[in-house]
Design a protein around this nucleic acid. Structure first.
Lengths: 140, 140
DNA sequence: GCTACTTCCTCTAGCGACTAGAGGAGCAAG
DNA sequence: CTTGCTCCTCTAGTCGCTAGAGGAAGTAGC
């Protein structure tokens, strides 16, 4: 009976905003769904699964291209897991990189602020930004 | 004697690429420098200080608008430090937010990969992405 | 002076992943 | 029938650059 739900319902079901769903269709991350007589998009259960998969992956910080591959792998039972695993592992390495960088930045920025509040005359923030030599690392 | 250096030299001195320097001028983060007879930009020592300040702040992850404010504060000795400090503190809070989020993601993604290599049949990566219920947190 | 080579100029378009808004059509309820 | 909601398409904007086209100017060697 259910020939599909509208984009608004798909949006609620997946947690992805309607314009974003249309965007995903435009970049062909999602197949173009059939239309109703009044030209509305009609999504079926498979589309909704796909959307939830995408949303979940985006929330975990995967970029669109890796998600495209993961979706292809998810639909192909022949050799999915090794590739999927390597995509996930490379994403993990990415996250570790970002955490490491941000942690280094945190140290630097914290150092910059930590003795600023006692005196308004010599501003440590501006001083530090103007002179790199006070920093712990050469490359941030 | 030195009426200024060219954009290429300013680029080398500051570590900011020439197109980026022109971009900063375009968005008025930098004042338009005077030009030579042949229409080349000529930067003076103040401009170079400004550029180094910007580069350093960018390396520390400050966005352009905060840097614009910091530059204004750096040039105004009347009430610089309190505002500069609050900009830096808010940036620090930002960094902490990002680290916290990435750390949570790391856990989730690591959990996803950690038992994937033993079996190619049931792919944990794809399974986890397709079903949010296995996750530690509702919102990532 | 001539020729190469390099640097510089302006302008436009592209990246990723959306988001916002205009202007219009369909649809469901009262 | 009218009100109000959802939906449609299309374009442009976000951020911080980066890349490229097409041309002018400066520099070094002969």
């Amino acid at each position: 009976m259910s020939q599909g739900v509208t984009i608004g319902q798909a949006s609620k079901a997946s947690g992805i905003k309607a314009p974003t769903i249309r965007y995903y269709e435009q970049i062909q991350l999602l197949p173009s769904p059939p239309r109703s007589e009044g030209n509305r998009r009609l999504y079926d259960a498979d589309d909704l699964r796909r959307l939830r998969f995408i949303r979940h992956a985006r929330e975990l910080g995967f970029e669109i291209e890796p998600i495209r591959e993961l979706l292809a792998l998810a639909g192909d039972p022949s050799r999915p897991c090794l590739s999927a695993d390597s995509i996930a592992r490379s994403h993990l390495a990415d996250i570790d990189h970002k955490i490491a960088r941000l942690t280094a930045l945190r140290t630097e920025v914290a150092r910059m602020t930590e003795c600023a509040q006692d005196s308004a005359a010599n501003c440590r923030v501006i001083e530090v930004l103007g002179d790199h030599s006070g920093c712990l690392h050469d490359r941030h």
